[in-house]
Write a protein that binds this DNA or RNA. Structure first.
Lengths: 245, 245
DNA sequence: GAGTGGTCTAGACCACGCA
DNA sequence: GCGTGGTCTAGACCACTCT
């Protein structure tokens, strides 16, 4: 088997269940099991890897805690799949002041391809002459533009995406289904800015009004930065809502 | 023992380890073990409760995952204590644009007592004639006012707090040490507002400039709302920074 | 009924902190 | 060296899902 001896040989000792976790994670990341597919049963994995039921279980529990697999009693353990709802619930923190999550629709998006700017190259870990797709779109709530987004992704990683109009409401389902890229975490920085002429006109507010601006970096299963996204919206009807634990 | 039979008797079956968890949680909440104190060892708890080592362990792991206890290998399991650093790291999401967490100091605070407003009563679950303390304070970074806070708490729950000047930088250590109230989670809603005359003057910016306004509700170990806190700061030097998983 | 994940047990041994 | 939490095992039985 590919696991280190179960006899702890310090230094460099790592628990067996962590080794199992990483082995399974690598298989998921490399596409051995695709999103929505079932992994082998705990018993099968245990005997294949030569470890006990409990050890495999602990590894799978840890992957489930990180939202990488999903367990269904009586059925099996599945690689997580991004649905419209799950991606929205996990990463979209814009809500009505009462607390209810907003659910915007999306009509038109414009995609352009260009050289990556230095800051984008740095944040996305791209080469000097790398190209990116830039997606601009307005998202609607109750028939009016509510959120304006600018999204930047590697053109190399998402080759052909610019020919796939119309785009789905939640891009992460597309990234996963068509390009094998699963977004599993993100970092957001929020600031307060004045609306420019363009934003003000699109959002139906006066120029100079305060806007919330969210700058997100989204990461895949391996921790690689995949997407930069800037979202802007007017406070009042909507707020950014988050739980701290 | 106080636990339900370990023989599952559906309906109403609840796993043993959850029952153990709730029993331990109730003891912590009622002060049987105080913050920073050690719980009995896993082995002791197991024999006292008449369950196995593994079951107690699963209950303690779950409490540790919720930041209610802290495990230290070789030493024991401790009720979490809010230190300046831990409370700050968990609940203070204001950072420099680079990502480094800001660490403001606090000079003067003013405390007043008054009747709770209807919205406050509702959010804090208070009676009709309940009174609250309102704390206003400015927090400093690099010698200048950076964040303005208005905090509202039940005067009944924190009786005598108004006579305890000066207040510590992180109030949650005071709530816990002097009033037995442990803040374990919070909900924040962020919006973008224009600076009023007063805020503009205090923050050294022009009136009407965009500010980030954070409205927090903080909860204790039993899920009861304890504190309302509004924080305002100017974007530019500082951002609100959060990780999504 | 067969197969899956979920719970629970009992016991062995390891890593860590401290006296 | 002792007591603590951390890992790992083997096996039993329960709960859920599908056929």
């Amino acid at each position: 088997m590919t696991l280190a001896s179960r006899l702890p040989d310090r230094p460099g000792f790592r628990p067996l269940y962590q080794q199992v976790r990483e082995l399974l994670l690598a298989r998921i990341a490399s596409g051995v099991w695709r999103p929505a597919e079932a992994l082998p049963s705990e018993q099968t994995l245990a005997s294949e890897l030569g470890v006990s039921h409990g050890t495999v279980r602990k590894a799978l529990d840890s992957l489930a805690a990180d939202n990488l697999v999903e367990r269904r009693q009586g059925k099996g353990t599945y690689v997580v799949e991004h649905t419209q709802e799950s991606a929205h619930f996990r990463f979209f923190k814009i809500a009505y002041p009462g607390g209810e999550r907003a659910m915007p629709s999306c009509r038109k998006a414009t995609i352009s391809e260009r050289l990556a700017k230095p800051g984008e190259r740095q944040r996305l870990g791209l080469d000097a002459d790398a190209r990116v797709f830039q997606i601009k779109r307005d998202r609607f709530i109750d028939g009016a533009v509510a959120v304006r987004e600018v999204i930047v992704i590697s053109a190399d990683l998402f080759r052909g995406l610019d020919k796939r109009q119309p785009l789905p409401n939640t891009l992460y389902t597309l990234y996963q289904a068509e390009f094998g890229v699963s977004i599993v975490s993100a970092s957001e920085q929020i600031e307060s800015v004045r609306a420019g002429r363009d934003d003000a006109e699109a959002l139906g507010i006066e120029a100079g009004a305060p806007l919330l601006e969210i700058n997100r970096t989204a990461y895949d299963i391996t921790g690689r930065a995949i997407e930069l996204r800037q979202s802007r919206f007017a406070s009042g009807k909507l707020v950014y809502s988050v739980e701290l634990r």
